[in-house]
Design a protein around this nucleic acid. Structure first.
Lengths: 235, 235
DNA sequence: TTAGCTATCCATCTAATGGTGGATAGCGGG
DNA sequence: CCCGCTATCCACCATTAGATGGATAGCTAA
């Protein structure tokens, strides 16, 4: 109910749901590092927004699995255990300051590329109470990787980027205004949009007033009616 | 701004705008007597809603140009002057009680038929300060009639009826709920919907809550998002 | 460097919307 | 004749959305 099929990150959500149905995980996150949609495609599974903000602002660059370290490899799936010994991990600032407080112990990252470059990562996470990903599980993730990579590159990203560009050009919106409009079209309330974009409610209201001016409407309902009208005219 | 192209009675509005641009009129009304869309297609031009309610409830049956009197004729355009002498008109209850208080003196009706039966009427009205419709003007209205009749029968009604049926079947709505939903999709506020359907605001709210239940949404925005999502999936 | 654009945030106020729990009246089928 | 459905109306209340009139900071191009 909360996420209709208009929800911009439906693809990520479906991907995480699939993985969750196939192997036991305690948390997961799907994030884009694509230049067109930077940090606009984050979907969490059993991870608090606070953890996400913490990661982005303070710990991302310490992550042993940080994507910039793997652009020149051809790995499909990488694990924390393959990068660090147990001792090295326990001694690291990243583990002590970020992973341990957030109940994270085992991590496997599915790397999704576009011509070598990593454009998205699916991180699957297990708590200290669980055991490490076994070879069968890693084999499964390796088999899933090509499909995710194909769907992301061939279906989701082109469609998503095209829709954003169309909205942006049609109404002369800024990037951020398109972010807001996408979520308006998904039917979210201002409060939920603020939560999703991790800004204050006041900010969303300001963006909305600007969108209303640019689209020459007076209310959210008129804005949605305009979108519907445009869709119908594209016959 | 107030009426986007989703507005259900856009066709009637455009028709009245055309007539108004071609000949001098003081008021006009386009109403459907089509069995599928009875009293759902009324569009007024310079006529108060109160006048319309008055006509429908009290004076419609007294109208010398009332459509039921002309089903067996083949007239395209009829005028008050051709039906009644000036003396007969001034003596009539209809003139004294309805026309005179509403500043109406001259009337010409364009009759739009579907196989003989009149399914819609465009009434053009002039005040006592104006003069009667002259032969040139009546000739013009007679020339416009075939086009209006064609567009109504071939384009507007089939499309409108199909859209209503689709909404009604998809969400199992009542007739009245479809009336409300059409106007929601046009982006109208509850107050404007109430005005348009000539009922109280409370009635619209009740209908809306029923629509939300049937479509499994919680707010107007989610409802509009659902419509958008359905439109997109019809590829 | 100054001006303009973008993105963020804020307080206060009013208007609009939605939820609850009713009531009434007409219509049609069992 | 009663039941269920439809359409209408009502009061009260809580939440949400929008309007106004700001402020700050970063970035960029003249």
């Amino acid at each position: 109910m909360t996420s209709s099929s208009n929800f911009p990150n439906q693809f990520q959500q479906q991907s995480l749901d699939l993985i969750n149905s196939l192997i036991a995980i305690d948390a997961a996150v799907f994030y884009l590092v694509d230049p067109d949609l930077q940090h606009k495609g984050v979907v969490r599974y059993k991870l608090s927004p606070a953890t996400e903000i913490d990661y982005q602002k303070k710990f991302g660059h310490l992550d042993p699995l940080s994507p910039d370290k793997f652009h020149n490899s051809s790995d499909k799936v990488i694990t924390l255990s393959a990068q660090l010994s147990e001792q090295q991990l326990y001694r690291s600032e990243y583990y002590q300051q970020f992973m341990a407080p957030n109940q994270q112990r085992y991590v496997a990252d599915i790397l999704l590329r576009q011509q070598q470059r990593i454009i998205a990562v699916i991180s699957v996470i297990r708590s200290p109470a669980a055991s490490d990903f076994n070879p069968q599980e890693l084999a499964l993730l390796n088999k899933l990787q090509p499909f995710f990579e194909y769907a992301l590159n061939a279906v989701y990203l082109p469609k998503r980027v095209a829709e954003r560009q169309s909205l942006q050009e049609k109404y002369q919106l800024t990037e951020r205004e398109v972010d807001v409009l996408e979520l308006i079209i998904a039917g979210l309330s201002n409060k939920l949009i603020a939560r999703e974009l991790m800004v204050e409610l006041a900010t969303i209201k300001t963006h909305l007033i600007h969108i209303y001016k640019k689209t020459a409407v007076a209310t959210r309902s008129e804005l949605l009616a305009l979108i519907i009208s445009d869709l119908k005219q594209q016959h």
